[in-house]
Amino acid sequence: MSVDTAAIVVLEIVNSITILVLLALGLALIFGMMRIVNLAQGEFFTAGAFTVLSAVRFGHLPLWAGMLLAPVVVAGIGIVIERLIIRRLYGRPLDVMLATWGVSILLIGLITVIFGAVTQGIPFALGNFQVGRYSYPEYRIVMTTVAAGLMLGVSLLFRYTAFGRRARATIANPEMASAAGINTPRMFMLTFGLGAGLAGAAGAIMAPIVGVVPTMGALYIARAFITVVVGGPVVLVGTLSSASALGFIEALISRFSLFQIETAGHCAPPPCAINIGGSAFFGQIALLIFAILLLRLLPQGISGFWRQRR
């Protein structure tokens, strides 16, 4: 393999990991920490993308301003939903699932009513750079930088601020936290809002490379859940390590053909063979198989396994 191909493969792996981190980060707080199976998480992502679309198209704001606005707007939506619905259902996981599913359908409906069911796009103007024979879009690097920034920001927030300590205490033991004078309902609300806001940020950052359509959340929610579940109980480290493992496998299998199966039929040029691996299709399959294997071998997720070993 030549140097430039090796470099491009590394970039592809980083890109796969980036997308998984972006998708999973918000859910890591809501599902990983708060144990809320939030089926509306995909729609928070959608809402972020539509915030950017509205800001650019109707508010005539620059793209970056729309992207800064998106997490704020979506965090607001998240907080309203927490106050109105989720709050009443803590400790009732099945009911929360049903309720957030309803919220998901409601949000898709609302967005469709406002923006129509059409696919829309947000063009962007960044260039590309040369890696040997390949040219690679600069925006992918921006995405990775933002994902790393968000990850670092969330980790610092929970580790070093008063808010973070209170939120962790609340989630670890709500009664004790409450007895210690922490306003626990407020902590739940803010953590949920933060998780929603992060999904909104992900939607905003990915909006320029994907089609913006009310049902787009469905394309991403499964991967978000898989990443968080495989990550296990140590939320941030777990999410990062599972995104890395899954993204690595996905990118590698998307790129390289593992083996060939000879077939009859039409092909150009003959003889006919199907490559196993080496396409986006096999990348997706590999990600799912690997996730299943990991969960079979490490039922507590990657970070759960580490925790046991310690």
Binding site: T5, I8, E12, N15, S16, I19, R133, Y134, S135, Y136, R140, I209, V210, G211, L219, A251, S254, R255, A268, P269, G278, S279, A280, F281, G283, Q284
Partner: peptide, 26 residues
């Protein structure tokens, strides 16, 4: 012959690897 083909499932939204393979094939 028309050469290489890549079949892509309808729900794929990220084409990074495909685009790089196209660049390789020139």
């Amino acid at each position: 012959h028309v050469g290489k083909v890549e079949f892509i499932p309808l729900d794929v939204t990220d084409f990074n690897a495909t685009i790089n393979r196209i660049q390789e094939a020139k």
